[in-house]
């Protein structure tokens, strides 16, 4: 179980997270939605301990990771796998070396064994005969698949997805959604995804939480979110430029209309 308690984070004068509270059950698929720059990525990076909060706690199976030293933190990260927005493949390594990175480094496996497992994981995400290619030779959708294969290679218990469908065509995006659901069912992992793609959120989520103004302003099942009366959530999920959510840099929507 993952528990985030009263999480605060500022960058300079910019107060990004203003007391986030969120609980994610084991085996659950949680999707955090929110506008660009609302701090979704920052929240995700706190869950895996890449960023340290100014205040608040993150509990992973009861262990407060904000209090851990470096070594303990690296130990607990072995429970995690993360898929990055632009896949973040290591471009000096081949595809199989990327997928097997954690196996080579953490488990000190021999190259042949790593390559075998890498091929297996790549097949799981629907890729064959790409082992010896370099990341620069792959398309965007393939990169995400390889990134996913890398995230699951060391058999993590928790999978984090940073905008898994952003930058993909609708068909490829749906294929990635299917993969996320498949991962959850096959590997019975807890997953947390952040996105602003509502189609994807409805499809992959058990529960959806909305991050707005540095706080979680509401959580619910996809159906509950669809039928919400909350004006902020309603504006976001229907994708309207008019409502309580202010667009950054646009101060007066009337003058915006008149123009």
């Amino acid at each position: 179980m993952i528990e985030i308690i009263d999480l605060h984070k500022s960058f300079g004068n910019h107060h990004v997270l203003k007391g986030v509270n969120l609980k994610i059950e084991k085996g659950e698929s949680m999707v955090v939605i929110g506008g660009s720059g609302s701090g979704k990525s920052v929240l995700l990076k706190h869950i895996i301990g890449i960023l340290k909060p100014d205040k608040g706690n993150v509990l992973i199976d009861g262990i407060d990771i904000t209090k851990l030293n470096e070594r303990e933190l690296y130990e607990i990260r072995k429970k995690f796998g993360m898929l990055f927005q632009m896949a973040a493949l290591f471009d000096s390594l081949t595809v199989w070396e990327n997928v097997g990175f954690a196996l080579t480094r953490q488990k000190k496996m021999r190259d042949e064994d790593v390559k075998k497992i890498a091929s297996e994981k790549l097949r799981l995400v629907g890729l064959v005969n790409v082992e010896d290619l370099m990341p620069s030779e792959l398309s965007g959708g393939m990169k995400k698949r390889v990134g996913l294969a890398r995230a699951i290679a060391h058999e993590p218990e928790i999978l984090l997805y940073d905008e898994p469908t952003t930058g993909l065509d609708p068909i490829m995006a749906d294929a990635i959604n299917d993969l996320i659901i498949e991962m959850k069912n096959k590997l019975s992992v807890t997953s947390i995804a952040i996105t602003h793609d509502m189609h994807s959120a409805y499809k992959i989520a058990d529960r959806i939480a909305m991050l707005y103004d540095g706080k979680i302003i509401g959580t619910g099942t996809p159906d509950e979110i669809k039928n919400t009366e909350d004006p902020v959530i309603k504006q976001f999920i229907t994708g309207s430029a008019y409502g309580p959510i202010k667009i950054e840099g646009v101060h007066n929507e009337r003058s915006f209309n008149r123009a």
């Binding site: 796998g81 993360m82 000096s92 953490q106």
Partner: peptide
Amino acid sequence: AELGTMRVTEQIDALETLATN
């Protein structure tokens, strides 16, 4: 240039998530 590119494309974060310093 190499480390800078790795930083802006989140490859350095990816190293951290794969439990590598």
